[in-house]
Design a binder for these strands. Sequence first.
DNA 1: CTATTGATGTTATAATATAACATTGAGATA
DNA 2: TATCTCAATGTTATATTATAACATCAATAG
Lengths: 165, 165
Amino acid sequence: MQKKIPTKETFEFFKKHDHDVCFGDAMMEIEKHCHKKNLQFTPLRRRVFEYLLRDHKPLGAYEILDLLREDGLASTPPIAYRVLDFLMKEGFVHKIQGLNAFVACSHPGSSHSPAFMICRKCEKVAELDEKISGINLGKSIPSDFSVEETVVEMRGICTSCMALS
Amino acid sequence: MQKKIPTKETFEFFKKHDHDVCFGDAMMEIEKHCHKKNLQFTPLRRRVFEYLLRDHKPLGAYEILDLLREDGLASTPPIAYRVLDFLMKEGFVHKIQGLNAFVACSHPGSSHSPAFMICRKCEKVAELDEKISGINLGKSIPSDFSVEETVVEMRGICTSCMALS
DNA sequence: CTATTGATGTTATAATATAACATTGAGATA
DNA sequence: TATCTCAATGTTATATTATAACATCAATAG
Ligand SMILES: [Zn+2]
Ligand SMILES: [Zn+2]
Ligand SMILES: [Zn+2]
Ligand SMILES: [Zn+2]
């Protein structure tokens, strides 16, 4: 299993990378996780996770349903939302609030408070682990509030798209 | 016009404050702003802003429409969304992504990247100015992405609600 | 077995948001 | 004055996102 080099990989996430390795690693991780926790990584769940993993592009629930339909599988809304709930609960998928879309986690395993960079042109998304992003939420928080979960999303433009404009 | 004491006020936002002053200041600010930019702060816009200012509680677009209906005003979806767009564009209202709801800005004027604390029990929201929150988004960002806008939301529980449970 | 359970399937509907076009009214212009 | 223009508001219809409620199925624990 290939070792990750977080800083490099993360800091140029919008550039090309060895996606076969990326894809394979993620599949391996979720299989391992489900086996360990005695959870069922069913064909449906696998399929949806594959869609999301395919090119790091966030997909809306209804886009996922379209893909399922194309693949001849059941495709009513609850199907997608349930699978997504499962994948999110287990930490392998995140919701991008600003897009009403879902994306495969890029740093699975390590329990984290992710931050996302979202290109407004190509809508690709890169996930930063909190350690790398340097985001220090929860440090200087008022005394009358207890943080349980954070959502951090940055809209902007990636260099590829910037170059094209 | 009353001077604000940001640190104190912000760090105990979930506690009581002099809301008459708070309300009045905000109204003053938006009137001043619209006058300066030659924008129309119409009765409709004023009314919606008042709803949002009333108790710092985020309101969904359809809640606002209900309030407008109660007040005998037009209440079809575009009415609310257009007014909200205007108020957001001018920086006096923010959308809370995690709630699909809208809230009056607590630090109007100062162009900012706000961060929100959202109580999952009472759903009240407190807004932190970036200076106060200590959030340093955009500092350690990858070289292949240019940040234009940030969304930071913290879910958790406020001390009032914590005390009740 | 058969009872329970987790997963999937199905139908209907709720909740959120926008597109497209019509009307109004307050200045600007002629 | 007449009418032009433009921003704001009003209206109808529809798109998009998400959930409730209940039915079926298959693996397995008792
Ligand atoms: Zn992640
Ligand atoms: Zn891009
Ligand atoms: Zn604000
Ligand atoms: Zn609370």
